[in-house]
């Protein structure tokens, strides 16, 4: 069977994550919530530790912690602390508690590096099902709420005037973000998840005139980065997660230069 090949599985996993990350990454860029993604990703380590202690699946542990984190931050915002302070406290304390908890897990030698940087080449059939299940769920959710999310991003009063509750849309967005972090953990790891959200979206910006084109272009750039990065890592014998993000960064640099050039020409 074709899925028996670990490289094919890795390609499919990369594409799945890139597709789900693209539209969400656009919202992360538009709403300036990059730090929010970071916080959720850091908390994921606590999820890994918990699932080892309770011997449940890593995905379940990470998803629960990421969702809890997302809901907590949404509830606690506007309660006297600035958002970045709140996120800073929660993200790093979750990471610290996670690392301490991992040290208590005796008998199990876990490869922390695999969670920090991901191990796309070790993606199994089960992981693949989880990644694509999660990706389809997130894509469905985002496309269902797309217009509402956009108007809530633009201006919360305009959203209210149309009968849309911007806080509900924000919650949908943060829950989707938690989901993407959980499914992407295996592919690029905790430290690089946010890169996969933001870089393709940012690279797509100079060539987009509407939010929709930006999301589609971001998906294409994300897919090229993951598949190309995987290929490059295979040839160069480099770590895959970082290679994927490096390729995305190179695409971003090229896009910015070309975009800037076109901008100057049109002046």
């Amino acid at each position: 069977m074709i899925l028996d090949d670990f490289l094919i599985r890795a390609f499919l996993a990369g594409i799945g994550v890139a597709l789900a990350a693209a539209p969400l990454g656009c919202f992360v860029v538009w709403r300036r919530m990059a730090y929010f993604g970071d916080a959720t990703a850091h908390a994921a380590i606590l999820g890994v530790a918990l699932s080892l202690v309770l011997s449940t699946s890593i995905f379940a542990g990470v998803l629960v912690i990421a969702l809890t984190m997302a809901t907590l931050v949404s509830l606690l915002s506007n309660k006297g602390y600035a958002m970045d302070t709140l996120l800073g406290v929660m993200a790093h304390s979750a990471l610290a508690f996670g690392l301490v908890a991992v040290s208590f897990v005796s008998g199990v030698r876990i490869d922390l590096m695999a969670y920090l940087f991901g191990d796309i080449l070790a993606v199994g059939l089960n992981d693949l099902a989880i990644i694509w299940g999660g990706a389809i769920l997130v894509l469905g959710l985002i496309s269902w709420r797309w217009s509402n999310l956009l108007i809530a991003t633009l201006n919360s009063d305009l959203a209210h005037a149309c009968g849309i509750d911007p806080r509900r849309e924000q919650l949908i967005l943060t829950l989707s973000l938690a989901m993407v972090v959980a499914v992407a953990l295996k592919v690029v790891g905790v430290l690089l998840i946010v890169a996969l959200l933001i870089i393709p979206a940012a690279a797509a910006r100079p060539f987009s005139r509407t939010p929709e084109t930006m999301a589609l272009l971001a998906a294409a750039i994300g897919a090229i980065s993951t598949t190309g990065g995987l290929q490059a890592a295979y040839w160069l014998d480099t770590p895959t997660g970082p290679t994927i993000v490096s390729l995305a960064a190179i695409l971003f640099a090229v896009a910015s230069l070309v975009g800037h050039g076109r901008h100057c020409q049109s002046r």
Binding site: W30, N155, S208, R209, T210, E212
Partner: peptide
């Protein structure tokens, strides 16, 4: 049905949006 014109609309530079797309939000 209420039409609302806010005091100001801050548009983030990272959000590409044509006027006609804006007019079709959210309906």
């Amino acid at each position: 049905s209420i039409g609302y014109v806010p005091q100001h609309l801050h548009l983030d530079a990272t959000l590409p949006m044509t006027v006609s797309r804006f007019m079709r939000l959210p309906f």
